[in-house]
Design a protein around this nucleic acid. Sequence first.
DNA 1: CATATAAAAGACAACATTGTCTTTTATTCG
DNA 2: CGAATAAAAGACAATGTTGTCTTTTATATG
Lengths: 146, 146
Amino acid sequence: MMFSKSFGYALRGILYLGMSDEAKPWIQLDEIAQELAVPRHFLGKVMKKLVKDGVLNSQKGPYGGFCINENTLKTSLLKLMEITGEVEENGVCVLRLRKCNALNPCPMHHQIESLRRQWQALLASTFIGDLIRKDQPGFINSIAAI
Amino acid sequence: MMFSKSFGYALRGILYLGMSDEAKPWIQLDEIAQELAVPRHFLGKVMKKLVKDGVLNSQKGPYGGFCINENTLKTSLLKLMEITGEVEENGVCVLRLRKCNALNPCPMHHQIESLRRQWQALLASTFIGDLIRKDQPGFINSIAAI
DNA sequence: CATATAAAAGACAACATTGTCTTTTATTCG
DNA sequence: CGAATAAAAGACAATGTTGTCTTTTATATG
Ligand code: FES
Ligand code: FES
């Protein structure tokens, strides 16, 4: 019940772009990494993946950088987890014994089933757009570390 | 939402002992590892920790091995996670930004709060004894791989 | 006591994730 | 075109988890 670093960086990077002033079309990696206090090159790799999957746009060269596009706000957390590598193989037992299966359940299957369903539902039905609070002045602090 | 290998091995090892015939006082690592199809020496390290924390007993020498004790069945999954190293530091944000805090929440705090509470409650209130099904003949298969 | 046995302990390897650094590629602008 | 800029790409290091192998320690038995 904890996201990978990659996932956290991806989400925070996206939200930073989503919160940024539209007057500035492209935001550079340098700025994002500095504001979020995140390792620059590692964030770069994560952002690259997001661009490749069409969740963000990027532009090389002077005045280039990253920005959101028409897909960004419609992207689900589940999609984000797929992109950042939390494979979350379909229906795998929490003990990783096998495909999760109510007919041949592991000892924890029943206690955990409902929670897993809720978790999946949350990831699939929460979108980037749901997480942005442009009206809330302190929002940017909530994605910067400490 | 997935346990570490160490946790899985620990739980399955304990349950194997809990299911075993009481006529045989000590069960050897060799048998457990083979039956559960788990790496023997790695399991050994995990079992050692369980013994150190008083969740199991062990005995060196001929006819030695492992067995459950008066604490075993009363051990919670939360305790087991502590022992196997899923630190689960108290109230850490899912994005690992800071101590989790409703007053200064990260963007995901509200969506996730209820699930985390349920998860914690489940771990704290489920005990090894709750997971053993001595009456169920196929139980042993449910903790063996595949 | 000598021997055999099994856990405990420790050294080390394989692998995945995370992080750093350098080089390459594309783009803007003068 | 040439220089500057910024992402993309790739090589590599640090760290954590998982897995293997060998040596040490404790115990039972004859
Ligand atoms: S079989 Fe293990 S969680 Fe479903
Ligand atoms: S502040 Fe991030 S989950 Fe609570």
